[in-house]
Design a protein around this nucleic acid. Sequence first.
RNA 1: GUGGCUAUAGUUCAACGGUUAGAACUCUGGUUUGUGGUACCAGUGACGAGGGUUCGAUUCCCUCUAGCCACCCCA
Length: 472
Amino acid sequence: MANIKIKKPQNQEFRKRKEKKFSRLRGVRDILFDEYKYYDLLKKKACDLASVYGFNRVETPMLERIELFERSTGKDTDIVSKEMYSFIDKSGNKIALRPEATPGLVRAYIEHGLFNLPQPVKMFWLGPVFRYEKPQSNRWRQHTQFDLEIIGEDSPVADTQIILIAYNFFSELQIDVQVQINSIGCPECRSEYINKLEEYYKERGKRTKLCVDCKKRFNKNLLRLLDCKVEACREVSADAPQIVDYLCDGCRDHFIKVLEYLDEMDIPYNLNPFLVRGLDYYTRTVFEIVPIFEETENEENKDSSSFQRQVSLCGGGRYDGLVEILGGRPTPALGFGLGLERVVKKIREINIPLKSDKVDIIFLAQLGDQARRKMFVFFEEMRRRGYKVRQAFTKDRLKAQLEEANRLGAKQTLILGQKELIDGTIIIRDMDSGTQEVIDFKKIYSEINKRLENGSNSSIGIMEEKEEKKIN
RNA sequence: GUGGCUAUAGUUCAACGGUUAGAACUCUGGUUUGUGGUACCAGUGACGAGGGUUCGAUUCCCUCUAGCCACCCCA
């Protein structure tokens, strides 16, 4: 009965609080504690792989001039024409939040004269990119990319190596993937091919069967007709001439070599003649990496939809013309971008547990202000000696402190109260068994070490062997 | 940008055109004034926003916002 009287003012308070609340912008996300562990893992993996293969880390600004992307990624691409976060700053400059990494990296290569370094220059990059899209799961307005670029290298070995690195990244995280690969040739052979393609689509009645979008695309970007997902368009395109048959000698040799090396490395790939990619600067090799389709129980949705369902986790290719387009000297180059959010989602879907970091944690608990002071100091001493210590000195009650110790997964808890303080002792509690012992404070380190050695077999624990299927 | 579905505690999910909108997990407190992880008890906490229909809307209708799905496209 009294509840009613109490409840009313609380509701008013609630309303006030609610009015003050902010919510996140559309399509962006907060990454909280548990999820962040996956990002840490991926970033570490990315750093390790990059450095093994000789890439050095660089960072470029999130802001660039709009013209940079218009000239490189392409003015008519969707990324630039409709998905760019752009604005005019206070001095009237047209600015964009970078929608991808490559143009900024190439800009930096030219601007800092990196062609004076031993070639090729291998860059490793990790950071957020922005695209103003309609959000969906697996599609965010801000996402994080791991990017590798090799500038100043034309060997097909580099193409395969870059694919290999991306492939290793996934397989070492226990994600089964397949490489979709194609060559779109150089500007010369491509224009010849596009003429052939135009002839093909102009044949009687074909154009009328195409979807509305493709009819528009016909004049703007003919290549894109190939990867339209509308059934009718795919039927029309099924017998279209394939670019691999029209590559010039140089491009064909290059592509064949890339595939040969891939075979050599046992990397599963699918030669996909319809893979085109929506960025203007690509030449020769283009690829995407998609998770391998997991078999569904229902046979029905296998044939038609399975192909289109997979979001790609990584995309990249060669861009031999880009350095020149942006004002550098002609320089072959290539790279990939890899979306960490999608990878995290995938890992969580297939449910691989992370390796626990709760190893050998020692918790310091205290009762009373004097004991707290002593443990406050002692905590620093233990930390400097390299012990994995944890505490909750802001809490007074022992119960609350043990709860925290338990949450942290502590192995041992040291408890110091008034009595122990006077006696010169301390309690050491084994958190698994719940047994505890009063020991001489002076012998504290030898007692701890004794217990750590007995209790667990892994005291160093960063790079142990894979136990079962945990990732590390 | 186009089309469809959805919106209830921090989370996952109920119910209902009508007095006080239920539960589980979480969180806080207690059983245990110096002892966690199990158990039991109690408490905090919600109808996305605005408008309309109605005597009365969390429920029906519209708009907005956000999320999901399919396109477009992409990581």
